[in-house]
Every structure is written in C-alpha cells, then in structure tokens.
Write a protein that binds this DNA or RNA. Structure first.
Lengths: 123, 123
DNA sequence: CACGATTTGTCCGTATGTATC
DNA sequence: GGATACATACGGACAAATCGT
C-alpha cells in the first residue's frame, strides 16, 4: 500500500496506486473516483496529499476534476492520426489545463487537439 | 497589485504578476526569482498561495524550481524545426515535469524534445 | 570535512467559498 | 434548503538539497 518510510513522496505513491487501479480496470473511463475525503480516509492521508496526487493525474490527462461533483477517469480515445502536408506546422502550447497541439495549415487555418490525443505524421 | 475581492484566485493573480514581470524583463532567463518566502512577504500571501502560483508557471515552462536553491526563469530558445519524413511519427507524452515531444523515425530510432521547443514540419 | 543558513519539497490541520445534486 | 464535493487559502512543521564558511 502506502509506505510512509519509503523515499517516494506519499502523494506520489498514492498517484501510483490510483494509476494502477485505473489500468487494472477497477476505475473505468467516465466513472467517478472516490471523493478526496474518501481517498484520504482509505489511505490514511490528509486531503492535501490526496489533492496533490490528483493534481499529478490531471497533469497526465488521466483524470478530470469537477467542482461539486468529483473526479472522473478521463476517456482516452486512441490517439488520432493527423497528417501534416507541405507548408503545415505543428507546435505544442502549454498553459491552462492540458497541453494542446496546434496545427497551422499552409492555408492559414489552425486546428487544435488535446496533446495526448494525436499522432502526427507527414502526408 | 493583488485584489482579494477579485473573482480570480489569489495564486492566479500572483502568477499573472510574475508572468508580467518576466515578460517586462525585470526577471531575465537564467536569473533567480525571489524566494517563495520573499514573494509571500511582498504580496502578503501565504506560502501555499505562492507555491500554487509557481506551480502554474512551471507547468507553462516559464520557470524551473530546484530544491535548496530557488526558482529560475527558464531560458526558452526559439522553437527548433523538426522535420518529419515518410514513416516518421510524433506524439506528446505528458507526466512528470514538462511534456515532451517524442519522434519515432521510420528506422525505429526515437528522439525526444521539450514540447515547447520544437516546431514540427513535414519533410 | 563539518556546520549552519537558506530554499524548496512534503505533510498536516483547519477554515471558508462555491458549485452540484 | 441541505448535503456533498472540490477550490482556495491560511497556519505550522519537518525533511532534504544546496551553498558558503
């Protein structure tokens, strides 16, 4: 479970646990995670630690938190292929929320995608 | 400065302030930011709020923090063009620290770059 | 090499605000 | 209105890394 004496931070261990429970199928996409209070109770951690763990998982795009509702396992569709034609450019923008891939077409049109939802290929 | 009555969270306002001071050239790349304690003192905020603000800026790739040292303004080089040839693929990996762009060449070789340091173009 | 000062990292407890049901 | 749940913010505390003395 969680070892206070391990050299890995508690909130990282908790993130590991939740990550495993998700990949094990215990928590499925679209499904609610236990509340922060419940997770804290279950693992014997303060809510600050629980929130830090969830913050990590959010940065990984694994979960989303909605105020007044809870945290849900994010549905991660198979990365969608995006073709780059001559004159196209793709960059990654950081900042608010999940990073996004911005594709500027040769025509000047722009498209954006969740950064973990695309696989870029030359045309 | 910082308005406790604004709709915007205090730590977000602080992040805005620091962002402006960086883009204004008051803090230059490679230079140390004031310590968390100093920032808290200056803006009348608890360290939790200061750390939340710095966490935002780190996610944006604007600053880096080193334990025992402090936080430095990150040097953001001009995004470097990376050419995708036939059979190449590029994806973005989230997770620990800054997101990275992973390029898998047709040969099977892989290259990774800081996500905000590349501009992808078809060959 | 040892020691202390500084700074960030981690953790806890508590309180209040706000959105959802 | 009430219950639940996340967001924000404060305070304090100790650990760990770094640097200069």
């Amino acid at each position: 479970m969680i070892d206070p004496n391990a050299d890995r931070a508690l909130f990282r261990q908790l993130a590991d646990q939740i990550r495993e429970r998700i990949s094990a199928g215990e928590f499925e996409p679209g499904q609610m995670l236990p509340s922060e209070a419940a997770l804290g109770q279950e693992y014997g951690l303060a809510r600050t630690a629980v929130r830090a763990a969830l913050s990590l998982l959010r940065a990984e795009g694994l979960v989303e938190s909605v105020r007044g509702l809870g945290s849900v396992v994010r549905d991660r569709p198979e990365p969608k292929p995006v073709r780059l034609h001559k004159g196209d450019e793709a960059t990654v923008t950081l900042g608010e929320g999940l990073p996004r891939v911005v594709v500027v077409r040769a025509s000047g049109d722009t498209e954006t995608y969740p950064a973990d939802g695309v696989i870029l290929r030359p045309a």
